[in-house]
Amino acid sequence: GQVNVNNTTYTFPTPKLAKEFAQKAAKKYNLTVHVSGNTVTVK
């Protein structure tokens, strides 16, 4: 799974890890998680 945070893309071996990372990043920066297919964007 891929996660985009502040124009930086992070790649994870599983969608589960990507989702967990996205949720932590969203909480940390007070942003929202947007899911589109296999790509998760935090903005």
Rank of each mutant, 00 (worst) to 15 (best):
T9K: 09
V35L: 10
S36A: 09
T32G: 05
A22V: 02
G1A: 12
Q2F: 10
K28W: 14
V35K: 02
V3R: 11
G1Y: 07
V33A: 04
T8I: 15
Q23V: 11
Q23R: 14
K16R: 09
S36P: 00
A25S: 04
A18P: 00
V35W: 07
V33E: 00
T32N: 08
F21T: 01
K43Y: 15
A25M: 15
V3K: 12
V42G: 01
V5Q: 12
K16L: 09
V3P: 11
K43H: 14
T14N: 10
T39H: 05
K19Y: 13
F21Y: 05
T41Q: 06
P13G: 05
H34R: 06
K27Y: 07
K28L: 14
P13A: 12
N7W: 15
L17D: 07
N7L: 15
A22P: 00
S36Y: 07
T41G: 02
A25Q: 06
Y10I: 10
F21H: 01
V35T: 03
T9L: 07
T39D: 03
N30G: 15
K24S: 06
T39E: 06
A26E: 10
N4K: 12
N38Q: 04
L17W: 04
N38I: 06
K43R: 11
K24D: 04
A26Y: 06
F12M: 02
Q23H: 09
V5S: 12
G37T: 02
L17G: 03
A22Q: 03
E20F: 07
A26R: 15
V5T: 12
N38W: 02
S36Q: 12
K27G: 05
F12R: 00
T11D: 05
E20V: 07
V33R: 00
K19Q: 14
P15A: 14
P15Y: 07
T9D: 04
V35Y: 04
T8V: 14
A22W: 02
A18D: 00
T41K: 04
Y10W: 08
K43P: 05
Y10F: 10
G37S: 03
T39L: 06
F21D: 00
P15S: 11
V33I: 08
A26P: 02
F21P: 00
V5A: 11
L31R: 04
P13K: 10
L17M: 12
A26Q: 11
H34I: 15
G37K: 04
P15I: 12
A22R: 01
K24M: 14
G1C: 15
V5E: 12
V35G: 00
G37W: 03
Q2K: 12
T41I: 14
Q2R: 11
H34F: 13
T11G: 02
E20S: 07
K43W: 15
P13Q: 07
V40A: 04
N4V: 11
K19T: 06
N38F: 03
Y10M: 05
V35H: 03
A18Y: 00
Y29M: 06
L31V: 13
G37H: 04
V40C: 00
Y10H: 05
T41R: 04
V5P: 11
P15L: 11
F12Q: 01
Q2L: 11
A18E: 00
T32S: 09
N38M: 05
T8E: 09
Q2A: 11
N4E: 10
F12S: 01
K43V: 15
T8P: 07
K19A: 10
V33H: 01
T11F: 11
G1E: 10
L31G: 05
N7D: 14
Q2V: 11
P15D: 08
F12T: 01
L31K: 04
Y29I: 06
N30R: 06
L31F: 07
T39S: 06
T11M: 06
P15W: 06
T32E: 13
N30M: 06
A25W: 15
N4P: 11
L17I: 07
P13Y: 04
A26W: 06
G1Q: 12
A26M: 13
K27W: 06
T32R: 05
N4D: 10
A22H: 01
T32L: 07
H34K: 08
Y29E: 05
E20I: 13
A22G: 04
N38A: 07
V3I: 12
H34D: 07
N6H: 15
P13R: 06
T32D: 10
H34P: 01
G37Q: 04
V3S: 13
F21E: 01
T41D: 03
T11A: 04
T32M: 08
A26F: 07
G37A: 04
K28S: 05
V42N: 00
T11V: 14
V42I: 15
T14I: 02
N6G: 12
T39G: 02
H34W: 11
L17N: 03
V35N: 02
L31Y: 06
K27I: 08
K27V: 07
N38H: 05
K16T: 08
E20K: 11
V3F: 08
V40T: 01
G1F: 11
P13E: 08
F12W: 02
L17R: 06
L17E: 10
H34T: 15
P13T: 07
K24A: 09
F12N: 00
G37R: 03
L31Q: 05
K27L: 10
K24R: 14
S36H: 11
N4S: 13
Y10D: 01
V42A: 02
F21W: 15
G1T: 13
N38S: 08
V42H: 01
N38Y: 03
Q23G: 05
G37C: 02
N4H: 13
K43D: 08
Y29V: 06
T14K: 02
V5M: 12
L31N: 04
E20A: 13
A25V: 15
T14Y: 03
P15T: 09
V40P: 00
T9E: 07
L31I: 10
P15Q: 10
T9W: 06
A26D: 03
S36K: 10
H34A: 09
A22M: 02
V35A: 03
K16Y: 06
Y29D: 05
T8W: 15
L31A: 08
N30I: 03
K43L: 15
K16N: 06
Q2M: 12
V5Y: 10
L31M: 09
T41M: 07
E20Y: 08
K24F: 11
Y10L: 08
T14G: 04
T9Q: 09
G37E: 04
N6T: 13
Y29P: 10
N6K: 14
K19D: 06
V33T: 04
P13V: 05
S36M: 10
N4Q: 11
K43M: 15
A22N: 01
K16G: 07
V42Q: 01
V42P: 00
K24L: 14
T8H: 15
T9R: 08
T41P: 00
V33G: 01
A26L: 09
V5L: 12
T14Q: 02
V3L: 11
F12L: 03
T8K: 14
T39I: 10
V5R: 12
A25N: 03
Q23S: 09
T32K: 08
K43G: 08
P15G: 06
K28A: 06
V33Y: 06
N38K: 08
E20Q: 13
A18M: 01
N7T: 15
P13S: 09
Q23W: 10
V3G: 13
A18C: 02
N7Y: 15
T41E: 05
V3M: 10
Y10A: 02
Y10V: 05
K24T: 07
N6R: 14
F12H: 01
V35D: 01
G1K: 12
L31P: 02
N6S: 13
V3N: 12
E20R: 12
F21N: 01
N7I: 15
N7P: 08
F21S: 01
K16V: 06
G1R: 11
K43F: 15
A26H: 08
T11Q: 06
K28R: 10
N6Y: 14
K27H: 07
N38L: 07
K24C: 15
E20D: 08
K16M: 08
N6Q: 13
T39W: 03
N38D: 03
Y10R: 04
F21I: 02
N4A: 12
V5K: 13
A22S: 03
V3A: 11
Q2P: 12
Q23T: 10
T9Y: 10
N38G: 03
T14D: 06
N7V: 15
V42R: 01
K27T: 08
T9M: 09
L31H: 09
V3Q: 12
T9S: 09
A25K: 03
G1S: 11
N4Y: 05
A25Y: 14
N7A: 14
N7S: 15
V5I: 13
V35I: 09
N7Q: 15
G37L: 03
N30C: 06
T14W: 03
T14M: 02
N7R: 11
T41N: 04
T32I: 13
V33W: 03
T14E: 03
K19G: 05
N7G: 14
Y10T: 02
N6F: 15
V40G: 00
N30V: 03
V5D: 11
L31E: 05
